[in-house]
Simulated assay, not measured.
Amino acid sequence: MATSLFNGCMAKKIFTRSFIAAYKDRDISRKQLADWIKLSLYFEDPTRTLKPGMIYHETIPKYAELFQTGLCIFAFGFYATQIRAFQKYWLHEWMVTAILGRQTIDHYSRSHLIKCHDISHIATDSIDNSLQKFIGIIEQTGPGYLYQNIQPVDREEGMENDKESQNRDNTPRLKQCYSIELFDRQDREIKLRITSDGLFNCRSFVRDLGFYLNCPSSIDSAHLDKLGPVSSEQSLQKHQLHYEQMVKSAEEITPACIEYLKQLRLQYPDAKDSSRFI
C-alpha cells in the first residue's frame, strides 16, 4: 500500500482497493450516496474512468430503517467481497434510545400508536437484570408488524422494499451481543450502549426487552458509533463528500480496515461469502 492513494502510476488501482467512511443520515439513501461519490470523483478528477459497479453501495451495512443513523463503510473493488464475507463479524457499537410502555404497530416509537402502557412497576434494577438476558449468543426474529394489512406510518424512501420486508422469512436466527450498558433513564426513555455482531437487530431487541419487563416497548433511535476499527469521528458528513476529503479519509481508515479483515480471516477461516445483508 502506497503512502498516498493517488501518487504514482498505481494510484487508480490502489484507490479501487480502499475504503471510504461516510456518514449516513435521514436525508441520504444508499444509491444517492454512491452517486455523489461517483460525481465528486469525476468532477474533481475528470481523467478517472468510473466503471459500472465500481462503487458497491449495498455491501456493508445495509440499514434501511428510518431511525438508524451513523457510520457506514463503503468498499471498492477487491475488498468489497472481503467485507461481504465477514459482514456479520464486524463489531458494531450502537447508542440506542427506547421508549418503555409505548406500543406501536411496528415497534417504532414514531409510528401509529396503539396504547401507552403504565410503567410504574418498572424499576431501574429490573431493567438492568433484564438486559443481562441478551448478552451472549441469542435467538432473534425480525421485528415484524402487529397488523400485516396496515402500512407503518412516518416512513421515508429508505424502506424501498417495504412489502417484501413484511413477507420475509421470520425464522429465528442466532445473533451475538457482547455487552449492553444502561447509559441513562428519563421516565419512559432509556438510552443504551450496545456492542454486537453485524446481524444483531436493535428494534427486535427493544421489542423483546419489553416482553421481559411486561410492557410493550418501541425503539426511538439507533446511532451506530463504531463499526469494526472505524469510529464515527472518522466519518464524513454528506457535505464533505468530495475528492480531497475522501482521499484523506480513505488514507486514514484503509490500513485499519485491512488489518481488521486479516484478523477476521484468521479468526473465521470458513467465512467465504455471504449474500445476506444486515
Rank of each mutant, 00 (worst) to 15 (best):
residue 149 N to V: 07
residue 133 K to I: 10
residue 132 Q to P: 08
residue 140 Q to G: 02
residue 153 V to P: 04
residue 184 D to G: 07
residue 187 D to L: 11
residue 153 V to N: 10
residue 193 R to A: 07
residue 160 E to T: 14
residue 189 E to I: 13
residue 157 E to T: 13
residue 168 R to Y: 00
residue 186 Q to I: 10
residue 152 P to D: 03
residue 159 M to T: 11
residue 143 P to V: 00
residue 169 D to T: 00
residue 144 G to A: 01
residue 156 E to Y: 10
residue 178 Y to L: 13
residue 200 F to C: 04
residue 178 Y to I: 05
residue 177 C to I: 06
residue 146 L to A: 03
residue 139 E to W: 06
residue 150 I to L: 09
residue 148 Q to K: 13
residue 143 P to M: 00
residue 203 R to C: 06
residue 122 I to A: 07
residue 204 S to C: 00
residue 144 G to C: 02
residue 177 C to R: 02
residue 181 E to H: 12
residue 126 S to Y: 03
residue 185 R to L: 03
residue 132 Q to Y: 06
residue 203 R to F: 02
residue 157 E to D: 13
residue 174 L to N: 11
residue 138 I to G: 01
residue 188 R to K: 15
residue 124 T to N: 15
residue 137 I to S: 15
residue 202 C to S: 07
residue 126 S to K: 11
residue 171 T to A: 02
residue 126 S to G: 03
residue 125 D to C: 12
residue 126 S to F: 04
residue 137 I to H: 12
residue 187 D to E: 13
residue 152 P to C: 01
residue 159 M to E: 14
residue 183 F to P: 05
residue 195 T to E: 06
residue 180 I to G: 04
residue 167 N to Q: 08
residue 143 P to A: 03
residue 190 I to W: 09
residue 148 Q to N: 11
residue 183 F to G: 03
residue 149 N to L: 05
residue 133 K to C: 14
residue 126 S to W: 06
residue 146 L to E: 00
residue 158 G to Y: 01
residue 159 M to L: 13
residue 168 R to T: 01
residue 187 D to A: 14
residue 192 L to P: 05
residue 134 F to R: 04
residue 132 Q to A: 14
residue 203 R to I: 02
residue 199 L to R: 05
residue 153 V to K: 10
residue 200 F to G: 01
residue 127 I to P: 04
residue 139 E to N: 14
residue 185 R to A: 01
residue 128 D to A: 13
residue 174 L to A: 13
residue 150 I to K: 07
residue 180 I to D: 00
residue 195 T to R: 07
residue 150 I to E: 07
residue 170 N to A: 02
residue 132 Q to I: 10
residue 158 G to F: 03
residue 150 I to V: 09
residue 195 T to M: 04
residue 201 N to D: 07
residue 150 I to Y: 03
residue 199 L to A: 10
residue 153 V to T: 15
residue 195 T to S: 12
residue 191 K to S: 11
residue 129 N to M: 11
residue 140 Q to D: 04
residue 202 C to I: 02
residue 198 G to P: 05
residue 191 K to I: 14
residue 130 S to F: 08
residue 194 I to Q: 02
residue 175 K to T: 13
residue 153 V to C: 12
residue 141 T to V: 04
residue 190 I to M: 12
residue 123 A to I: 08
residue 178 Y to H: 10
residue 141 T to S: 08
residue 156 E to M: 11
residue 137 I to L: 10
residue 160 E to L: 15
residue 157 E to K: 11
residue 153 V to R: 07
residue 127 I to R: 07
residue 184 D to K: 12
residue 160 E to P: 10
residue 134 F to K: 06
residue 141 T to A: 05
residue 149 N to C: 06
residue 195 T to I: 09
residue 157 E to C: 11
residue 148 Q to R: 11
residue 141 T to N: 06
residue 198 G to H: 02
residue 169 D to S: 01
residue 201 N to W: 02
residue 133 K to L: 15
residue 184 D to E: 15
residue 129 N to Q: 14
residue 182 L to N: 10
residue 142 G to A: 05
residue 152 P to Y: 03
residue 180 I to K: 05
residue 126 S to C: 09
residue 151 Q to Y: 09
residue 168 R to M: 04
residue 192 L to D: 07
residue 189 E to F: 09
residue 148 Q to T: 11
residue 190 I to P: 05
